[in-house]
């Protein structure tokens, strides 16, 4: 199963996130998209092999962009990383039905722990 990442190339949080999860996922099972256009294009192709998406939003704009393609995202198990902890931002985030919610200012150890468990579950289901 491939894991899809969405993160901005200019965002330092993206690098921190990759460092935290690199031991969990082989490079060839990772798909990283750095623009909403690229992500949207990918999700409009058959994506049976994709199961989990880790979406890192650096600001409200990138969160709004994700909401604009909400319909194609809902098939995936989403780990969503929000740009801030404001109530309104969190409410926007819940519209994507994330299976786990974290924040861009965290150390992403929680994201890695949840991702590890999700990958384990998916592998068990596929076997």
């Amino acid at each position: 199963m491939n894991i899809l990442f969405y993160e901005s190339p200019k965002d330092g949080a993206g690098e921190r996130l990759q460092r935290e999860v690199e031991a969990l996922i082989p490079q060839e099972e990772k798909e990283i998209h750095c623009s909403i256009e690229s992500l949207s294009r990918r999700l409009r192709q058959p994506h049976n092999k994709l199961g989990i998406a880790v979406l890192l939003t650096e600001d409200l704009k990138s969160l709004s962009d994700l909401l604009s393609i909400r319909e194609v995202l809902l098939d995936l198990r989403i780990i969503l990383i929000l740009p801030d902890r404001k109530e309104a931002t969190i409410a926007m985030g819940h519209a994507l039905h994330p299976r786990f919610l974290s924040y861009a200012d965290s150390n992403f150890k929680d994201v890695a722990a949840v991702l590890k468990k999700m990958i384990g579950l998916s592998d068990n289901n596929n076997n």
Partner: peptide, 12 residues
């Protein structure tokens, strides 16, 4: 208001 998903299987 919010529809909040808790994935009990995915949480360590």
């Amino acid at each position: 208001n919010n529809f909040v998903v808790v994935d009990c299987a995915a949480l360590p």
